[in-house]
Design a binder for these strands. Structure first.
Length: 649
RNA sequence: GCCGAUGUAGCUCAGAGGUAGAGCGCUUCCUUGGUAAGGAAGAGGUCAUGGGUUCAAUUCCCGUCAUCGGCUCCA
C-alpha cells in the first residue's frame, strides 16, 4: 500500500504506508535526517518516528522551526526529570512543559530542598544521559494501566492529571529509565540535546492555585550546539545592560531608599526633569484633544470607596486607613482617581450638550502590592497615572474610544514603541463574582471595545479573565529587557461606576440619563512608562527628552570661561548643556560623556575660541566637525523638529 | 504573601572564625592636554539588622529588613 506525501513546496511523492517522517527525511538527505526533530503532518505536530498511515501534507521540523524547538525543550524536560530521579530518588513530578525560552518541570522533593548550587550536578547528569542517545518511545496505554503505574510510583500529581483524561487517549513516553504521562510530541532521541543550562529554581503552586501545595519549579534551556548556548547567554548579558534599574542608577534618574519604604520611588533631578517633559508632552496632546485638567487630593474618605466598590474589593488588602484623631473618620490613600473624578462630575448638573466631558489629572495613587512583586519602577506602591475620565452619552462611547486609541498610538509613535501588543481583556464568564456590575452592562462595554478596536484596524489578542473588576479594557502591552510583558496604555469602558455614583445628565428629552465612563491612561503610569522607555532606548533618550543634550568639554582649564559662555548662549536656544570643567584630559571627558549617553559633545579649545565655533561630536558616532554656535543650535532644533513632524504625520 | 538566592566603601565586586581589600568615583596636589581612561597622595566601612554558638563572629546558626529570580496577585 502506498500513501501520498505532499511537501511544503507542493511536490507529492508516494511512500509505503507506515513510513515515518524520519525515514522520509533519510530518503531526501542524510543531513536532513540528522536535524529532523518532529514533523507536522496535515497541521498536527507529531513524532518524527510515528508511522504515517494515510495521505498527508508533511513538513519536517528542525531546530529552526517553532515546533522543533518546542519538542526539543519538552523532551529536555523529560531528560531533566530522568536526571532528577537518579539524583533525588522518590521525587514526584507535576507538569513539565516547554515555554518561550526553554522548559521547566514542577517537582515535589518531599523534605529535600534544591538550590541553584545543585544545578551543576543535574546538568552533568542530563548531559551524561543525553549522550546515551536514548529514544523517546511512545506507548498508548489504558487508563487503568496508567493509574496503576503512578499508584505504584506514588505520584499523586500524575494521578490527579490522569483522572481528568479519558481512556483511549492516554500515552506514555519512555526514554532510558524514565516514563512520563505525556501526549508528546518528542524528538527522536536524547542525543540531540548537546548543551544544557538550568537557569532558575522557584516555588510554584500546584496547578497555579495559591491554596494548594507549592512545588519546586526548575527552569532550564537546552540547545543542539554548545555554541548556541554561549550565544544565548551572551544575549542575556546584553539584555541586562538595558535593565532600567541599572541604567536608572547609572544615569541618576531615580533611586529607592529603605527608609522611605520599598516600592516608593524617589525621582532624582535628571529623572524628574525627564518625567516633566513627558508630562508636558501629554498635557499638550490632551489640550488639543479637548481634555480639561483637574486636581484632586491624595486621600479620600472611606465612604467614597464604599460607593465605588474599591473598599469591598480591596479594603482589606490596601494600606491601612488614616484616621482623624477627633472624629475617628477613616481616609484611604487613593488607589485610583476615578472616584474623585466622579464627584467632580457630580459637582453640578450636566446637560447632554456638555458631553463628552474629559477630566484629566496626573494623579498619584498608592496601592499595597505584595512585597515579592515589587520590581524597579515597573511595579511600585506609589505611582502617577496620566489618568483621565471621559463622561459621555452612550452613543458617543465608540467614537470617544476610537479617539483615545488614536491618542495612545500617537504617544507610542512619538516615543518609538513599535513592538506593543494590543490586548482586549474581558471578564471570565465562569467567575462572575470577581467582577462588579450586571451582565447587560458588561456585554455593552465588551462589545464597544471590540468594535472600536476593529474599526481602528488594531490587531488585538483577546484575554479572557483579565478585565478590571469594574469593566473590560484594551491594554497596550510592551516587553521589558528581560522579556517580561507589562501593561502601559490602557483604555477601559465602564458602565458600573456611573451607576454606583448615580451620575446623570439631562437629555434633549428633558429626562435624566446615565452617562458612560471611559477610563484611560496612555502612559499607564509615568514610572512604568519611563522604565520601559529606558530599556527600549538603552538610556539613549530622544533629543527632546534627554536630561542633558550636550556636554561642553574644554580642552584645558584655560577655556573653562569660554565653555561657560557657550553654555549660557545655548540656554537662549533652549538647549540643555553642562560644562565638564574637571581637571581631566579631553579623551577622558569624552569617554565619560559617551558612557553617560549624552547625545552631543562640544569640544572647546584654542581653534574654537579663535574662530567662534564649537567642535561637535555625536554620541556613538564621533567627530562631526566644527560649527558656529548658531549652526549647532539649528542642528539640534532641526533634529527635534524632525522627530516631532514625523510623529504628527 | 510563598519558594530559592543575595546583602562587605558612593558604584562594581574580592575576602577570611583572630576586628577588612581592589578597581572606578570623591578630595588635594602635579600635569594644561585635541576626539573613548595622564600621574601621585588622601579621605571613606558598627562587613544590612537583632539574637544565638564561641575565649573570639563581619565570617557559623536562627529571626527581621531590603534586593534579585520565579510563583500567586495586580483597581
Amino acid at each position: 500500500m502506498k500513501i501520498n506525501i505532499t511537501f511544503p513546496d507542493g511536490q507529492t511523492k508516494p511512500y509505503e504506508k507506515g513510513v515515518t517522517a524520519l525515514e522520509i527525511a533519510s530518503s531526501i538527505s542524510e543531513g536532513l535526517a540528522r536535524s529532523v526533530l518532529t514533523a507536522k503532518a496535515s497541521g498536527e505536530v507529531i513524532d518524527a518516528t510515528l508511522p504515517l498511515n494515510k495521505d498527508a501534507e508533511l513538513q519536517l521540523l528542525t531546530w529552526n522551526d517553532d515546533g522543533g524547538k518546542k519538542a526539543m525543550w519538552h523532551s529536555s524536560a523529560h531528560l531533566m526529570a530522568e536526571a532528577l530521579e537518579v539524583i533525588y530518588p522518590g521525587v514526584k513530578f507535576g507538569i513539565g512543559p516547554p515555554i518561550e525560552n526553554g522548559f521547566y518541570y514542577d517537582i515535589d522533593l518531599g523534605e529535600q530542598t534544591i538550590s541553584e548550587h545543585d544545578f551543576k550536578k543535574i546538568e552533568e547528569k542530563m548531559l551524561e544521559l543525553a549522550r546515551e542517545k536514548n529514544e523517546y518511545h511512545r506507548n498508548e496505554i489504558s487508563k487503568t494501566d496508567a493509574l496503576n503505574y503512578f499508584k505504584e510510583k506514588g505520584d499523586e500529581y500524575k494521578l490527579e492529571l490522569l483522572h481528568e483524561l479519558e481512556d483511549g487517549q492516554i500515552t506514555f513516553y519512555t526514554q532510558g529509565n524514565f516514563t512520563d504521562l505525556c501526549k508528546g510530541p518528542h524528538i527522536p532521541n536524547t542525543g540531540f540535546i548537546k548543551a544544557v543550562k538550568l537557569t532558575k529554581v522557584a516555588g510554584a503552586y500546584w496547578r497555579g492555585d495559591e491554596k494548594r501545595k507549592q512545588l519546586t519549579r526548575i527552569y532550564g534551556i537546552t540547545f543542539p550546539k554548545q555554541k548556541e548556548l554561549t550565544e544565548y547567554l551572551q544575549l542575556l548579558e546584553e539584555a541586562k545592560k538595558r535593565d532600567h534599574r541599572k541604567l536608572g542608577k547609572e544615569l541618576e534618574l531615580f533611586t529607592f531608599s529603605e527608609k522611605v519604604g520599598q516600592g516608593l520611588p524617589l525621582w532624582l533631578p535628571k529623572g524628574a526633569a525627564l518625567r516633566e517633559r513627558l508630562e508636558n508632552f501629554m498635557r499638550e496632546a490632551q489640550k488639543k484633544a479637548g481634555y480639561e485638567p483637574v486636581i484632586t487630593p491624595h486621600i479620600g474618605h472611606k465612604d467614597l470607596y464604599i460607593t465605588s466598590g474599591h473598599y469591598d474589593k480591596y479594603g482589606e488588602d490596601s494600606f491601612r486607613p488614616i484616621k482623624t484623631p477627633a472624629e475617628g473618620e477613616e481616609f484611604f490613600l487613593k488607589p485610583m482617581n476615578c472616584p474623585h473624578h466622579c464627584e467632580i462630575y457630580k459637582s453640578k448638573p450636566r446637560s447632554y450638550k456638555d458631553l463628552p466631558i474629559r477630566l484629566a489629572e496626573f494623579g498619584t495613587v498608592y496601592r499595597y502590592e505584595q512585597s515579592g512583586e515589587l520590581h524597579g519602577l515597573t511595579r511600585v506602591r506609589g505611582f502617577t497615572q496620566d489618568d483621565a475620565h471621559l463622561f459621555c452619552r452612550p452613543e458617543q462611547v465608540k467614537d470617544e474610544f476610537k479617539k483615545v486609541i488614536d491618542l495612545v498610538l500617537y504617544v507610542f509613535k512619538a516615543l518609538d514603541f513599535q513592538n506593543y501588543t494590543a490586548q482586549i481583556s474581558l471578564r471570565d464568564p465562569k467567575d462572575k463574582e470577581k467582577y462588579m456590575g450586571g451582565d447587560e452592562n458588561w456585554e455593552k462595554a465588551e462589545i464597544a471595545i471590540i468594535e472600536a478596536a476593529e474599526e481602528k484596524g488594531l490587531k488585538t489578542v483577546v484575554e479572557v479573565g483579565e478585565a478590571a473588576f469594574y469593566g473590560p479594557k484594551l491594554d497596550f502591552m510592551v516587553k521589558d529587557a528581560i522579556g517580561r510583558k507589562w501593561q502601559l496604555g490602557t483604555i477601559q469602558v465602564d458602565y458600573n461606576l456611573p451607576e454606583r455614583f448615580e451620575l446623570e445628565y439631562t437629555g434633549s428629552d428633558n429626562q435624566k440619563h446615565r452617562p458612560v465612563m471611559i477610563h484611560r491612561a496612555p502612559f499607564g503610569s509615568l514610572e512604568r512608562f519611563v522604565a520601559l522607555l529606558i530599556e527600549h532606548c538603552e538610556g539613549k533618550f530622544p533629543l527632546w527628552l534627554t536630561p542633558e543634550q550636550a556636554a561642553i568639554l574644554p580642552i584645558s582649564d584655560k577655556y573653562n570661561d569660554d565653555a561657560q559662555n557657550i553654555s549660557q548662549l545655548l540656554k537662549n536656544y533652549d538647549i540643555r548643556a553642562f560644562v565638564d570643567d574637571r581637571n581631566e584630559k579631553t579623551g577622558k571627558k569624552i569617554r565619560d560623556s559617551e558612557m553617560k549617553k549624552v547625545p552631543y559633545m562640544l569640544i572647546i579649545g584654542e581653534k574654537e575660541v579663535e574662530n567662534n565655533t564649537v567642535s561637535v561630536r555625536k554620541q556613538g558616532e564621533g567627530d562631526l566637525g566644527s560649527f558656529s554656535i548658531e549652526k549647532f543650535a539649528t542642528i539640534i532644533n532641526d533634529e527635534i523638529a524632525a522627530s516631532t513632524t514625523k510623529i504628527n504625520n
